[in-house]
């Protein structure tokens, strides 16, 4: 599998989009689209006017023998003022409409549901009200949701075309973005601020649940990985595998023995490996736990110290699950 191909399985484009714009998935979408079509109308009018005049002048005044340019005025102040003031009136209208809907789009209604977003080099993490973190964004329909976002390394940008929302995720501060989803189904979320190698793979799925109840039900089941659908305890290794994908380990650690940005998980548990400073370390529970919480402590020989810390994103129980998963990969 070519290392460059994207591993993200995108949901099919939601039906209902127009030629120019995707489906109107949030309360603000119709407003944005109507301004979009308003400006398109004005632009088409001026475009047809100008190109029409060019073509007409070309045909009418094409240089032919015997045809001399007739005298015509070289300046006409009235004409000049008219084609400066009239367009500027249109511009004021455009500005005003853009400005009013922008004010609503940037001030979240109070009482909106808050979800914390953590962006880091090439994966998203959405932390819900009960502290559970998911790489997918799940929201109920017709409920205003505020995303409080920050980044752990470089500038990213969260863009959901269907909801007409976009805001940069800046390290060193919080930025907010809110929307009120109206269309049920699955949408795609893009990163639109260049953030390095896998910028184009930093996508996430947005799932809009039909009702708040359905959303709550999903949240309970998702935030308790240790029991499967019908309430039985799920085997630890399987939970570990789920964390392996959800927390983004998959992006740098392979499970088929091939070294990627990070060492492979296959067949390394229990072995002794050489560190960058030359010392030999047994890959046991303590080493894995320490490397997850403080990756710079003991870096495997031959690998760059680029692993971000997962402090505060993986509870002790979750680390235990990942260790069980590594053991199962003999």
């Amino acid at each position: 599998m070519n290392d460059d191909a994207s591993t993200f399985v995108a949901p099919p484009p939601h039906p209902g989009g127009s030629f120019w714009l995707p489906v109107q998935g949030s309360t603000k979408a119709p407003e944005v689209d109507s301004l979009f079509h308003f400006i398109t109308g004005i632009s088409l009018f001026f475009f047809v006017l100008i190109v029409g005049l060019i073509v007409w002048f070309l045909i009418q005044y094409r240089r032919r023998p015997g045809i001399e340019p007739q005298p015509s005025p070289h300046h006409n102040t009235v004409l000049e003022l008219s084609w400066s003031i009239l367009p500027s009136l249109l511009l004021v209208v455009m500005f005003y409409r853009g400005f009013t809907s922008y004010m609503d789009m940037r001030t979240p209604p109070d009482g909106a549901m808050e979800i914390n977003v953590n962006a880091k080099k090439w994966s998203w993490l959405f932390t819900y009200s009960n502290g559970w973190g998911e790489p997918e964004l799940h929201v109920p329909r017709d409920v205003p949701v505020t995303l409080v976002m920050t980044s752990e390394d470089v500038i990213h940008s969260l863009f959901i075309p269907a909801f007409r929302v976009k805001m940069d995720v800046v390290p060193g501060r919080y930025t907010k973005l809110w929307f009120n989803a109206t269309e049920v189904g699955e949408f795609t979320l893009f990163c639109t601020e260049y953030c390095g190698t896998r910028h184009s793979d930093m996508l996430a799925k947005v799932v809009v649940h039909d009702s708040v109840a359905e959303y709550q039900q999903w949240l309970e089941k998702a935030s308790d990985p240790y029991t499967d659908q019908d309430g039985q305890p799920r085997p630890l290794a399987e939970v570990g595998a789920m964390f392996y994908t959800k927390r983004g380990c998959i992006q740098c650690h392979s499970t088929d023995g091939s070294a990627k940005t990070g060492p492979t998980f296959k067949g390394t548990f229990g072995t002794t490996q050489k560190m960058t400073d030359g010392t030999d370390v047994v890959i046991d529970e303590n080493y894995v736990r320490e490397s997850i919480l403080n990756p710079m402590a003991k870096v495997r020989g031959g690998f760059r110290p680029v692993m971000p810390t997962f402090q505060g994103q993986l509870k002790d129980q979750d680390i235990g699950a990942i260790i069980a998963y590594m053991k199962s990969l003999k």
């Binding site: 455009m94 409409r97 853009g98 809907s101 922008y102 007409r164």
Partner: peptide, 8 residues
């Protein structure tokens, strides 16, 4: 140039 369409 207009704010809300630029967001998109």
């Amino acid at each position: 140039g207009s704010l809300s369409t630029d967001i998109q």
